[in-house]
Design a protein around this nucleic acid. Sequence first.
DNA 1: GTCTATAGCCAGATAGAC
DNA 2: GTCTATCTGGCTATAGAC
Lengths: 204, 204
Amino acid sequence: MARVSFRDQVLRVREEAILTSVNRLLAEKGFDVMTVDEVAADVGIAKASLYKHFSSKEELAAAAMVRVLDRALGQLGALMADKAASELDQLKAVARWTMQVQLAGEMPSLPAQNSALRSALITNRAYVDRLTQVSEQLGVWIVAAQQNGGLNPQLPPEVMLYTLFARACDPVLGLLKAGGNYSDEQIIEMLLTTCFDGLASAPA
Amino acid sequence: MARVSFRDQVLRVREEAILTSVNRLLAEKGFDVMTVDEVAADVGIAKASLYKHFSSKEELAAAAMVRVLDRALGQLGALMADKAASELDQLKAVARWTMQVQLAGEMPSLPAQNSALRSALITNRAYVDRLTQVSEQLGVWIVAAQQNGGLNPQLPPEVMLYTLFARACDPVLGLLKAGGNYSDEQIIEMLLTTCFDGLASAPA
DNA sequence: GTCTATAGCCAGATAGAC
DNA sequence: GTCTATCTGGCTATAGAC
């Protein structure tokens, strides 16, 4: 196995620092409002140095998304190891995890409208690959849960999948946190209830 | 009663045309990506003329929000006249209406992050008044529905209210419409199910 | 109130020395 | 690869003639 040079390690650490800043700023302000100058200032390097690592603002966002999707894949892998849990429980655990990430201010929020960003993302192999992997694993659990009665079998799996993704960046979380009336754990439990049991029915 | 001059009527029609364009562009691209040049081009007037009617881009967005909130208040008034409907039915009707507006490409989407926009909105009396009115009427229905068993009494009304607002600009709608596999009416019915009955339980 | 033209600013991205 | 300094373009907003 090839040894990694000290020089490469330093680079890797620096890129990690960049992505941490990008991730936080994307979660705070969103892609359109975030500026590359802010990122550079937050990392503590010159803007030109940033562009030696990432060739555009869109690439920065894509790299941040790849990192968060990798974290998600790690979560999925850990959950798959739990053979005792039902598929519904595993899906709830995923939703809980995404809400925790969002409450921690670490969920990057990308606008669906920005076309320059969209085309950069869909042509980014690393991003598309990971997004596909996450979707496929969730899809497996959704279909299984529909068959064993954990999820409503009348809704298309596609709708369930989109809904879970959407709840990972639901603005309701931010509103409730800003209100300050509930703990993070209370917020998560309430939103898990609204997501899986709806507004109408009382939890079992 | 004072007669409205012809001149004022022309102005009023022009401002309506401006707001229609702003509303559509806000729904399509969002506030940050929309430019005042685009609005002027869409209306077919010079940008400087726009600024004679509205003093800033934020004022444009606020006026568009006021108009959509007025439409919402009209809906609420019509629903209140239906004495036979339960409060749950009325809330579902409101949610259905907001989804129809969104599918029609007429729901302006404003980013929660942009601080210049936020301060312009919260200091806009017309906007705040209407938002308060809508919230209060929905709050009345929510509390009543919780008391008569239509809605889960364990969830704070505040959480229900935020959730209903959030569903009015839920990205899931756009994703499903872009997919092209379902009719508008099918999309709305599915999302009403996920919102009120959740992903887990089958509808009654 | 409408227009053309432009001011003023700030963003993303780059040049070139070290 | 890092920096300082700068380019380039697009944006909001305004000046000033009609």
